[in-house]
Amino acid sequence: MKWTDKNSIMLTRISIYLFLIVGVIGIVFADTIAHDIIFPGGFVADMGFGDITTFVICMQLGIVVAIVILALLHKLVMNLSKDEVFTEENIHLLRMLSWLCMLECVLDVGFAFNYASWILVAAAMGFIALIIRVIKNVFCQAYLLKEENDFTI
C-alpha cells in the first residue's frame, strides 16, 4: 500500500480523535488520576507542594485548553483535506493555535510555582507556539504570493 496525502490526513484525524478521548477521560477522572497514579499515598503535601485539589484544577484547565487546540487542529486538517491550503481561514486558525499554545505555556508557568514539573510542559508549549507562529508566517507569505499570482494575467 502506498502512503498518500489522504492516508496522512486520515491518520492525523484519528490521532486528534484519540487525543480528544484521552482529554475527556483526563477531565472526568482527573481526581482519581491525581490520587491513585500521580500522587499515590498523598505524598505531594509531604514534599512541600500544593495540595492535590490544586493539582487537579491545574490539570483540568490545561486539558480544556488542549481540547480547544484539538478542535482548531481538526478544522485545519479538514480544510487541508478539501485542498484549501493557503487561505485566510487557515492563517487565522494557525494564529489562534499559536496563541492558545502560548496561553497553555503561561498557565503552566503559573502551575510550576506549586509543581515544578509543570515548567517542562510550559517550555514545550512555548516551543510549540513558536513553531506554529513560524508556520503561520510561512502560510501568510504563501497566501500573498498566491493572491498575487491569481491577479496576474
Rank of each mutant, 00 (worst) to 15 (best):
L120A: 15
Q60Y: 06
M59D: 07
F55A: 07
I67N: 00
I63R: 01
I69K: 01
V121A: 13
L103Y: 08
I63E: 03
L103V: 13
V106E: 07
M96T: 03
C105L: 12
M47S: 13
L93E: 11
D83A: 10
D83I: 05
W118F: 13
L93M: 10
Y115N: 03
M78D: 14
A129C: 15
D83F: 11
T87W: 00
I52D: 03
I52T: 06
F49Y: 15
E84P: 02
S98E: 10
F55M: 03
L76G: 00
A129F: 10
M47K: 08
W118P: 09
H92S: 04
M59A: 07
S98K: 13
L73C: 11
N90S: 06
V65L: 15
M47C: 11
S117E: 14
F113S: 15
M125L: 14
L93G: 04
M125F: 14
N114W: 06
V109I: 13
N79Y: 09
I57Q: 06
V65F: 12
T53M: 02
M78C: 10
I119N: 08
L70E: 08
T87Q: 02
I119V: 09
I63C: 04
M78W: 12
A122Y: 10
M96H: 02
F55G: 04
A129M: 15
I57W: 02
A66W: 07
W99M: 14
V65G: 08
F55Y: 12
C58N: 13
L70H: 05
V64H: 02
F111E: 07
S98W: 11
V68W: 03
D83Q: 10
V64S: 05
F111D: 09
L73D: 06
V109F: 15
A112G: 14
